Simulated assay, not measured.
Amino acid sequence: MLFRQLEYLVALARERHFARAAQACHVSQPALSEALRKLEDELKVLLVRRGRSYEGLTPEGERIVLWAQRILADRDALRDEVDALRTGLAGRLRIGSVPTASGAVPLLTGPFCAAHPLAAVELSTDLRSDELLRQVRNFEIDAGITYLPGPGTDDLRALPLYEERYVLLTGPADELARHPRATWEEAARLPLCLLHPGMQGRRVLDEVFAGLGLEATPRVETDSVASLFAHVRTGHWASIVPYAWLHVFGVPHGMRAVPLAEPVHSAPIGLVTAAREPGSVMARALLEVARRTEVAAVLGSLPGSA
């Protein structure tokens, strides 16, 4: 059994197409198919359902691909560990983030790169929380910044970073813009632009509204926090955004950020890695940086207007 064969199997499971998997692995499609057939012969089990085109993995293939992902992750971790022992930490740190938490990412990547000048960082900042956890589990990323996972996640390690709190973002002409705070009930009556319902950041807001017996009915829904700011800028909409994003944009000209109260709600955000030992040397290094960084202290206050 060769690492190359396992890489082909993982690529096929990810791409769900023989030609795309071969392209991702920089080999011809016949070479990839033949290597997978040899892997099946060696394991004495059918891994891929073949017809006129790719029809998916067999149940046995689905199980074997999990082992392949783990073996390849351990190989990469071993290489990184050896490189770190020889010349210092090098290679690429892969981080994923949910959109609402992506404003906090530079607070970790900055000190990480300063501490490890030979390392590079690869960011994916538009992942949904369930997809982010899947990628951590499948070793596609080293760490994720997301809402802290609940029960049934013993295979993950979570380090709390900060509490996500919310402000009403509106134009200066709105009456609430002149108030020191706004209630969720008042916010629900405004023409809202909010995140898409399938995103965890939106589900958090919906739970707050539902707990108060309210229902927000946004006229515009988007998968981008930046798009929320762009819509509020037009003067036709209001939105509810996390404090953390105000540390990216400030409070842009022509907008007001009003803290939401009654209730003051927060959601815990943390750094999530796979709970395996010894695990990824990149993930361990990022955890060390996160433990030394006062993320909550930076993001806990409302910044002034830009």
Rank of each mutant, 00 (worst) to 15 (best):
S33E: 12
P59I: 09
P59N: 07
L12D: 05
V27F: 13
A21G: 11
Q29S: 15
L9E: 00
Y54K: 13
L47P: 01
R37T: 05
L36M: 04
L36S: 05
A22G: 13
E42G: 04
L36Q: 08
S28V: 07
C25L: 12
L43V: 03
G56S: 09
A35C: 09
P59C: 07
H26T: 04
R14L: 12
A22P: 10
C25Q: 15
T58W: 09
L39T: 01
A11Q: 09
S53E: 08
E15P: 03
R20T: 07
S53M: 10
A19D: 11
A35I: 04
V10I: 13
T58G: 06
D41R: 09
L32Y: 10
G56D: 05
C25R: 14
L32K: 08
L43C: 04
V48Q: 02
A22M: 10
V27S: 13
L57D: 05
V45T: 13
R52C: 01
S28N: 12
E40P: 01
A13C: 07
V27N: 12
G51E: 09
Q23E: 15
E42W: 01
A13T: 01
C25D: 03
R16P: 02
A22S: 11
E42I: 01
D41F: 00
P59T: 06
L47K: 03
L32E: 07
A19S: 14
S53H: 14
E55C: 06
H17T: 02
L9W: 00
Y54N: 08
E40Q: 11
A11E: 05
A24G: 11
G56V: 07
A35P: 06
C25V: 07
P30Q: 11
Y54V: 05
A11Y: 06
R49D: 02
R50L: 03
E40T: 00
Q23V: 09
R50G: 02
S53Y: 08
R16I: 03
R14Q: 15
L46Y: 00
A11W: 06
R14I: 08
P30A: 14
A21L: 10
Q23T: 11
K38R: 15
L47D: 00
R49Q: 05
E40S: 02
P59L: 09
R49W: 01
E34I: 01
A35Y: 04
E60L: 13
L32H: 08
R49C: 02
L9V: 01
A21M: 10
V27W: 12
A21Y: 04
L12R: 09
E34M: 08
A24K: 14
D41N: 07
